[in-house]
Nucleic acid binder design. Structure first.
Length: 571
RNA sequence: GCGGCUGUAGCUCAGCGGAUUAGAGCAUCGGUCUACGGAACCGAGGGUCGGGGGUUCGAAUCCCUCCAGCCGCACCA
């Protein structure tokens, strides 16, 4: 089916095109009517015509029969009020539409790079936003029809691995694996670091071990693999706890690109982009300067002939276009990396690896702050572990559930609390503009009132409960929507706006557009539920209201799922 | 110094390809109520949209400038 917004847009676009090809109708939701088209004023100005006059011209070519009533208001706004017949037709199509009006794209490939924890390090709040935002984008893109290739660009290479491997040997393999598999990655890392700083002999061994690793020594590689595998297994536990879709198959770490780095250098040299500076091989993309106003290099190969992350990122861009055939590439990485990615993308374009047709974006996000508005740390100044955060949220949710008399078993309550905790944390992250910092406030995010994940889950659960109380079944197919009450009509318009909300979220890479939509829909529902009795209503009103409830529940459930949030049947 | 992000009600935030009287949540105050799940709903107060210029019939939204905060600016990722 065609979404409501798209139907209007198509009709309007053809009318505007008749006046001036390519003119944008500027179609928006409206407070005065259902939708409004604001494109007349801009068009009038560009054509040197009086706006009211222009409105008449557009109107002359506008065919909205059976879809909406149009009224010219103010200087030339076109206020559109959808007809009940049209709303009825649209809603009846949704009854059998699993996609709730969302179209499916074909043939587009998107590579989405997110999460990126480090091997032999615990996942902490610093990984929360990339993981949660990236996963929401993956779910939205997949649902929209993209073939999504998720890439978890884990830090699995570099000088620290010398000391980590030596520490592993000191402990003995079995001991080391045991300590890693209980999830104490930080303890392992800290111990290695401490020895490295204090013990010169250990430091020497570590350096030699890095050389052996880079040289491909089989035994060293085996030990390295052990560390990576144990870490990835641990990451998987965290992802399961967070209900994130990433799997070990999505892990394509820095080391994966090692064999390509020489080719990257060769390509850049051939393109005449490579410059030696201070012993390092650099590219100086145009428009980037350092604090002294001098050209700023992207260092492809360090003066010690080692490769840094710039080389790896360049190789990844090259690989994702050439081998994965990406039409879009998203990098869900913190805002401080902005300049780095600008430079990488600029060099990739200059090198010819990244055609203009491929959309490549740094999906930047702000920091998670503590109550003191500084980077979120524990009381002792340490990073806060993701698992610990989830546990605390679950404990609070469980305590809140326990206060309420309910028929849940302990096990059920535990599971429900887990779902609420995840919803609270994810929704708090996904409901504000990602480019801003936000203060991590568990009390507020887990509250059952207000713009929170648990509130939306609750709205959904209330809806489901209606159907549990329904003894005689109903058939949504038999329903005609007349939308006599304004609360019914408002709810219907909310339901029908789902596709445009999802498209806005995808187009702008801003999941909070979808989150905001869902909150709005939940509010429309509660207003409706207050004003319109459902189960006690006489037929045919009862059937119509039940159908609205069912569509609302499905929309909330689907919308939340695209944010990576579960919608329990009962709370 | 250069660059990026941010600055909207007491607090947390939407709105920012200009367009008709600035929105929501929380908190506060006042209502609804023998409840289709009250974990709800309705209403009120509260804002010179960081300051100042400019473009425009019209700017929170576009441009310039200043202020404040955070972040980045050559071999760690």
């Amino acid at each position: 089916m065609t979404g409501t917004y798209d139907v209007l847009l198509a009709r309007l676009t053809s009318a505007f095109d008749a006046v001036a090809v390519g003119a944008d109708p500027v179609l928006r939701p409206s407070e005065r009517s259902d939708y409004q088209s604001n494109g007349v004023m801009a068009l009038a100005k560009s054509q040197g015509v009086n706006p009211r006059e222009m409105a008449e011209r557009v109107l002359a070519g506008l065919d909205l029969a059976d879809v909406a009533d149009v009224e010219v208001a103010g200087p030339g706004f076109l206020n559109l009020t959808l007809t009940t017949a049209f709303l009825d037709a649209q809603l009846r199509e949704l009854v059998d539409d699993d996609r709730l009006g969302v179209g499916r794209l074909e043939g587009r490939v998107a590579v989405i790079d997110y999460s990126a924890p480090n091997v032999a390090k615990e996942m902490h709040v610093g990984h929360l936003r990339s993981t949660v935002i990236g996963d929401a984008l993956v779910r939205m893109y997949r649902f929209r029809g993209y073939r999504v290739i998720a890439r978890n660009h884990v830090g699995d290479w570099g000088t620290p691995f010398g000391m980590l491997i030596e520490h592993l040997l000191d402990l003995g393999e079995e001991e080391a694996i045991a300590s890693l598999s209980i999830g104490d990655l930080d303890g392992f890392y800290r111990a290695a670091r401490t020895k490295f700083d204090a013990d010169d002999a250990f430091k020497e061994r570590s350096r030699a071990r890095v050389v052996a690793l880079q040289g491909g020594d089989p035994e060293t590689r085996r030990l390295w693999r052990l560390l990576v595998d144990e870490s990835v297994a641990y990451f998987s536990e965290v992802y399961a706890a967070l209900d994130v879709t990433l799997t070990p198959a999505d892990v394509v770490g820095e080391s994966f690109y090692n064999p390509m780095l020489d080719e990257v250098v060769a390509d850049l040299a051939r393109a005449g982009l490579l410059v030696e500076s201070g012993g390092a091989l650099c590219v100086f993309p145009e428009g980037f300067t350092n604090r002294d106003g001098e050209p700023l290099p992207l260092i492809v190969r360090k003066s010690d002939e080692g490769f840094g992350y710039a080389a790896t990122d360049l190789a990844a861009v090259r690989d994702r276009v050439a081998n994965l055939h990406a039409d879009e590439m998203l990098y869900v990485v913190g805002a401080p990396q902005g300049q780095h990615f600008e430079m990488v993308f600029a060099v990739a374009r200059a090198a010819g690896w990244l055609p203009e047709s491929v959309r490549c974006e740094h999906v930047a996000f702000g920091n998670v702050l503590g109550p003191d508005r500084k980077m979120f740390k524990s009381r002792s100044g340490e990073t806060v572990k993701l698992i610990g955060l989830l546990d605390e949220a679950r404990d609070r949710a469980e305590a809140a559930l326990a206060l309420r008399s309910s028929s849940l078993t302990t096990q059920e309550r535990h599971e429900l609390a887990t779902q609420i905790a995840r919803a609270a944390i994810k929704y708090a992250d996904l409901s504000t503009d990602r480019s801003r910092d936000y203060v991590f406030d568990l009390d507020r995010m887990i509250a059952f009132e207000g713009d929170t994940g648990p509130y939306l889950q609750y709205a959904h659960a209330r809806l489901r409960s209606i159907f549990r109380r329904l003894d005689d079944g109903f058939d949504a197919h038999a329903v005609h929507f007349v939308l006599a009450e304004s609360a019914e009509r408002d709810l219907a318009l909310g339901i029908l706006a789902f596709p445009e909300a999802l498209d806005a979220a995808i187009a702008t890479l801003h999941p909070h557009r979808l989150a905001g939509y869902l909150f709005d829909l939940a509010q429309r529902f509660t207003a409706f539920y207050e004003a319109c009795p459902v189960l006690s209503a006489p037929e045919p009103s009862k059937g119509e209201r039940l159908a609205l409830c069912e569509l609302t529940a499905r929309t909330l459930s689907l919308g939340l799922s695209l944010l990576g949030i579960e919608a329990p049947e009962q709370m």
